[in-house]
Each structure stands twice: as structure tokens, then as C-alpha cells.
Design a protein around this nucleic acid. Structure first.
Length: 480
RNA sequence: GGCCCGUUCGUCUAGCGGUUUAGGACACCGCCCUCUCAAGGCGGAGGUCACGGGUUCGAAUCCCGUACGGGCUACCA
């Protein structure tokens, strides 16, 4: 029975969507799309202490921002309690589960002792010795108990073919009689997760590497349930630049933080998709459509990857530059409005002006947060030269600065308002270096400082055109 | 401690027994372009394929061991 593949992304809402989770989601989504399967969103909220509605909303928002769409869900484990009790009942009836009355303190003591002796340190299985009558009597007496899986001990290892790692096997004597259902009646992750997968007819479980050791336990549950075993694909971890677990120390770890910092969803999607998967040896830029059609499990890398912020940023710059001007202009306008430098009305009336500015900006930034600092001078009445401008230009050769500004002012005053455009401005200033007897860069930098207040800006002539004649002349006069 | 997984330029990766003097991308360096910064073009440096044994006419590619790193070993997920 080879139906269409069904995969799921099942985050536990104990925090926001982080980079590793996002990549897992992307791989599940891309795999589903590549083979016409279904991508299901499931919220694994079996830990009521740490699961919050805010986190759930945040995760869904982040997924949507990345451009991932799901076909079913979200469904919540807390709303599916019935299927876990039913599964437990089946397991116990078939002799695959038993009650454990050991207290946490006893358990910890025995575990420490076992570890001290070396060898296996899982549950010592003492409650397996209880007869059904004894167990029932103690339960009836009100003694708390948890349900544990009865790992078979009369056969070979659990073997499965991992889509990423290949054949993987675990000897049975190394598998713990883990807790299925806690004494408060709630299912544990290892139980609920796989019961859900079976119930939802998941065909491929694509998840983080940290679950590899859990897999044999889950397969055993499936065997007890006589449910089909899905294909597993375990993804290696994403590490920080120091080779340690990715954390706040390294920078942002949450998807939404990237959105706030001016990263584009297509850039993050592209970067994450290729962090641990490759189309071939050449491709570094890949769009969602290609991902949806060409993704495959067999090209997922086995080794962990270090997250490279510099490469992500470079990639973001590429997407910014390749973006249609209309869209960039829109994004730029939004940034300016957020900064309080312009309003919606201004954008409506001066659309052509914004459109002219956009390409000048997009080709020199990598992050959208760089927009405002770069064009701020065009939206304020006057500018004050910054520190670098003071020391590197104004203070360097005051005499040359004065001469250059005077000559420029004289030349520009001859450019009429009606012909105030880049071409005329350029023509008017063409012989400025000769007039002040200086190299072009030395002759023009004072002008840039006067106009933009900085040693870095969009091209000078274009900047002056966009600033307008009156303000340009006023700023040059102010400094000369 | 036990079980499991991983190891190709600083980083992401290609490579799946000979086509490899190990290819691409980011970062880095130099040159060109140039009114600044970028972008772009050209070029460079950077890997004894973790290490040691095998197998083979031949190994980054197959096998074993060692080292290092990681995961699991919770009534967390």
C-alpha cells in the first residue's frame, strides 16, 4: 500500500521557532511538496508546564513568514488524550506494558548504583516481577504508578533503515523499559509522538538527530500496536560558530528575530535549505519553487553544520539586489515610515522619486536595517557631519575643503531648477578636480560630506538630484 | 559508565573505487572599475580528505581500530 507520503512537523511549543526547528520544517515541507505528499503541522504540547499559546502562535507565524504552508493541522496532542489511552490499553492487553510502582527517589538511587557498576543504567525492571493480581491490588489501594513498555528480551536487535544514516541497529538489552504514561495519566513524548504518527498515518518521520536514540523505543511501541513502521530520516544538528550548541551567545536563534533584523524570508529559507542538504555541488542560490520540485532525502548530509551568519547575510544581499524595484521600494518606504522619516502620503505623491532612489540603495546594502542610515540625509532638513567625516575630510585639509565647496557652489548655482538632474549636475561638476587642483576623490568628498553628512552615501550626483536644488545648495553654503 | 551517530579548505558543501594536480560558495588577500561605500570583473592564498591499519593493480571513496566531537541514557521534548 503505497499511498502518497505524509510527513509532519511536530514542534513542542516550549519556545519560539528556532533555526534548527525551522530547517526541520523546511525539509519536511520540501519533501512533501517534491513528491505530492501532505505536510502536517502538529503541536506536541505534552509538557503543559512549558507550552504556551503565545509560542504556538509564534511558531505558526514564523512558518508562514518563511513561506511554508501546511495541508493539515495544526492538531494538538493535549486534545488527543483518547488515542493514547486506547493505545496503552492495546499494549497492556498484549503484554507489552506493565505498571511500575517505583518512586522517583528509588529509581534515581538504583540508576546511580547501576551506573557506578558500569553497563546498562536504565530501569532495572523490578516491577516486571509483579503479577497482574499484585499490581491490580496495589493500584486499587491508591498507590501511584506509571506504565512502562515491556521491551522484549527474546530476540535480535531493532533494525531500521534510516533515510539519512542508512542501516542502524540497537541491541534490545540497551533499550530501556521507558515510561509510556506518567502516574498523572499523561503520556510521555516518546509514546504520544509515535502513537500520533501511527494514527495520522505518517509515512516519513523527518526530525532532529537528537531523536535517533529514541527511535528503537518508538519502533517497539509500533510493533506492540501492530502498526506499520514509517521511514525515519534523522537530521544532524546545527551548531554555533564555536562548534557548540547554537545559543543566544552566538546571536539570534529565533526565526522571527531574523525577520526583525531585516532578513528576507527567501534568504533564510535558501540558507537553511542548503545547510545540510545540497542539490548538487554548484548550487548556492535556490528558490522555493526549485526546492519544492527537487528536494530529496538522499542528499541530506550526515554531519552537523555550523551556522555561518556571514554567509546568510551575503545571501540576503543577493536577494535584496535581485528583488524587483517595485518591491524593494515598498519595503524601503515601510522602513522609512517606521523610522518616522516619511509617511504614506509622501510615498504616494513622490512614487517616481522613491523608485529612482531604490536601486541606488538596494545595491549597497545586505540588510534592510541599513536602509534608513543610508538615506536618512534625504529626509531631513539639514545634516551634521559625523565624526568620521570631521576627521577624515573636513579636518584633513580645511583649505581644500573650502575651495572645493566654493567652486562646487558656484558651478551648481548655474544649474537651473528646471534642469536639476544627475546629468546636468555631473556636467557642472566635471571640472571640479581641475579647478581645485586635486584628485577627484579629494575634490568630491567635501561635497559628499556637505550633502550627506557622511563619507559614505549613494552616488553624489544622484544624491544631489534627489535632495533637490534648494537643500543641496543650502547644505554646501552651510559648510563653506 | 553503557548504547548510538558523526569526522573533505576557517565555514557550508561536491565527491559515492580510476575522469581529481580534490570542484563550487561564503569569508580572506590582490588587481581592475570608480566621486565614497557597495555591486561587478579578474586573479590568489587556503584541504597530507581526523589518525592508524587493512582490502585492492588502484581509496577521500570499502572494512577494522583509535582519537576527537555529538546525541540518548528523565514519570523533558
Amino acid at each position: 500500500m503505497s499511498h502518497k507520503p505524509r510527513v509532519r512537523f511536530a514542534p513542542s511549543p516550549t519556545g519560539s521557532l528556532h533555526l534548527g526547528g525551522a530547517r526541520t520544517a523546511i525539509y519536511n515541507w520540501a519533501f512533501a511538496r517534491s513528491c505530492g505528499g501532505s505536510f502536517i503541522l502538529r503541536i506536541d504540547d505534552t509538557d503543559p508546564e512549558r507550552s504556551t499559546p503565545e509560542n504556538i502562535a509564534q511558531i505558526m507565524r514564523a512558518l508562514a513568514w518563511l513561506g511554508l504552508d501546511w495541508d493539515e493541522g495544526p492538531s494538538f496532542q493535549t486534545e488527543r488524550a483518547g488515542i493514547y489511552t486506547a493505545a496503552l490499553k492495546t499494549l497492556s492487553e498484549r503484554g507489552w506494558a506493565y505498571r511500575c510502582f517505583c518512586s522517583p527517589a528509588e529509581l534515581a538511587a538504583r540508576r546511580d548504583a547501576a551506573r557506578g557498576r558500569g553497563g546498562f543504567s536504565g530501569y532495572d525492571r523490578s516491577c516486571r516481577a509483579l503479577t497482574e493480581e499484585e499490581a491490580q491490588a496495589r493500584a486499587d489501594a491508591g498507590e501511584p504508578f506509571a506504565w512502562r513498555l515491556k521491551v522484549p528480551d527474546d530476540r535480535g536487535p531493532v533494525v531500521f533503515e534510516d533515510a539519512v544514516r542508512g542501516r542502524t541497529e540497537f541491541p534490545l538489552d540497551a533499550i530501556d523499559d521507558f515510561v509510556l504514561v506518567r502516574s498523572d495519566g499523561t503520556p510521555t513524548y516518546n509514546f504520544a509522538s509515535i502513537v500520533d504518527d501511527a494514527d495520522m498515518a505518517i509515512t516519513h518521520v523527518i526530525r532532529g538527530d537528537d531523536h535517533l536514540s529514541n527511535t528503537p523505543k518508538q519502533i517497539l511501541v509500533l510493533e506492540g500496536l501492530r502498526a506499520p513502521v514509517p521511514t525515519f530520516a534523522h537530521l544532524s544538528m546545527i551548531w554555533g560558530p564555536d562548534g557548540k550548541k547554537l545559543s543566544k551567545r552566538h546571536g539570534s536563534t529565533g526565526v522571527e528575530e531574523y525577520a526583525g533584523q531585516g532578513y528576507l524570508p527567501e534568504a533564510l529559507l535558501n540558507y537553511l535549505a542548503l545547510l545540510g542538504w545540497s542539490l548538487d555541488g554548484e548550487t548556492t542560490l535556490i528558490d522555493a519553487e526549485t526546492l519544492k520540485s527537487r528536494f530529496s532525502l538522499d542528499r541530506i548530509s550526515k554531519n552537523p553544520a555550523i551556522f555561518d551568519f556571514a554567509k546568510l547575510t551575503w545571501m540576503n544581499g543577493v536577494y535584496l539586489r535581485e528583488m524587483p524595484v517595485e518591491r524593494f521600494t515598498q519595503l524601503m518606504a515601510e522602513r522609512l515610515q517606521q523610522a518616522g522619516l516619511a509617511d504614506e502620503a509622501d510615498f504616494e505623491v513622490r512614487r517616481a522619486w522613491y523608485l529612482k532612489l531604490a536601486p541606488l540603495v538596494s545595491e549597497r546594502i545586505k540588510l534592510m536595517t541599513e536602509i534608513v542610515p543610508l538615506v536618512r540625509f534625504l529626509f531631513v532638513e539639514s545634516v551634521e557631519p559625523d565624526e568620521t567625516a570631521q576627521t577624515k575630510v573636513l579636518g584633513k585639509d580645511p583649505d581644500l575643503v573650502r575651495r572645493a565647496l566654493r567652486a562646487a557652489l558656484e558651478a551648481l548655482e548655474n544649474v537651473l531648477e528646471a534642469e536639476w538632474d544627475t546629468a546636468h549636475i555631473e556636467a557642472a561638476l566635471a571640472d571640479l578636480p581641475a579647478k581645485v587642483d586635486a584628485k577627484p576623490r579629494l575634490a568630491y568628498q567635501p561635497l559628499r560630506v556637505a550633502v550627506a553628512g557622511s563619507v559614505v552615501s549613494p552616488p553624489l550626483n544622484e544624491s544631489m538630484e534627489l535632495l533637490g536644488r534648494a537643500r543641496t545648495l543650502a547644505r554646501i553654503r552651510a559648510l563653506s
